[in-house]
Amino acid sequence: MALVLALACLAALALGDQRLAPGAVARALLAPGEGPAHVEIIVRGLRLPRAVLALLVGAALGVGGAVTQAILRNPLAEPGLLGINAGAALVAVLVIVELTAVPDSALPWLTFAGACAMSAAIWLLAWRGGSAALRVILIGVGLSALAGAAASFVSTFGEVTAVQRAMIWMAGSLQDARWDKVRLLALWLVLPMALAWLAARDLDVIAFGDSVARGLGQRVDRVRLTMILATAALSGAAVAAAGLIAFVGLAAPHIARRIVGHRHAALIPAAALCGAILVVAADVVARRLMPPAQVPVGLMTGFLGAPFFGWLLWKARR
């Protein structure tokens, strides 16, 4: 998977409006100043931060999906099922359409705050002396629908240009990839990813069900709350950096599970690699599909993920 990811990143650096030979890409990366200046600008200034941002976003969504499927014991679960993405999207639409005086630099922080606020609301509403997985799912679906309706209401009566900008953000885009955004996202993801990997044995246990986990001495509610917070941090940061990118959190854990099995000590890093591969590859296809126009990567992952979702539903029909 690491080799496939490296090849996908090489394709992301070489393909675009102007094709570059692999040798030119390697020279721009390994020997700056020795090749043409415009090649170095394209590779190091434009395509490399975009590829790294896609890698980080995909890894975050893949790990978030693996954790969500474990704590909810649902093979069709992903971070969006908890309403996290809907909370971030609602805040983004409000800021872009209604609060035009807010600077663009504040948008990622506000969308991340919306994701965390939605996670807190789901947990508080689902708590009934405990945190049953089914209640968390139902509350998440309900609040997600409510947030989606509110975002649509704001968009319906907003100024056309601002609404178009919000729609592009919600479609998922990597066009605003910058090194400062890449560094911030990388630093933010270290703690929740490490927390998810260190909790691998707890995730193995809780996947058997609350009764079995409690019988083995696990504090189920504490583990579920901690993992929901970790998922909110991962998914919220990814959405804040690149907008809504669909189906990666659903598909990446299933692909990784086919390769490494069900133990989360191996599944967590494998899901990160699979998610990174999916987003980087989808971005390459999106950039080459309708040149010079660039299809948002979120639309591309949606086109690729819908058949996968149908296959999962068919597989789980009994």
Rank of each mutant, 00 (worst) to 15 (best):
M227A: 08
A271P: 06
A251L: 03
A194K: 00
S131E: 05
V52K: 09
L5Q: 13
A265N: 10
A88M: 04
M193Q: 04
T231C: 00
V297F: 13
L13D: 08
G129N: 04
P269R: 00
V284D: 06
A151W: 08
V220I: 07
L203E: 13
V212C: 11
E78Y: 08
V260R: 00
A230H: 08
V154G: 01
R201M: 00
L313G: 15
N85Q: 02
V205A: 00
C116Q: 02
V136I: 15
M170G: 11
A86L: 02
D283H: 01
P296I: 00
F208E: 04
A121Q: 03
V63E: 02
D202K: 01
I84Y: 03
R224F: 10
S119F: 02
D210Q: 07
L225T: 15
V39G: 12
W179Q: 11
L29A: 09
V154H: 02
V248P: 07
V39D: 05
G114E: 08
P36G: 13
S211M: 05
S131N: 07
I84N: 00
V220P: 00
T100G: 05
A54I: 14
G275K: 04
I137D: 09
V284A: 11
V285P: 14
V260G: 04
L94M: 09
D180M: 14
L29F: 08
I259S: 05
L5H: 11
I122Y: 07
V25T: 11
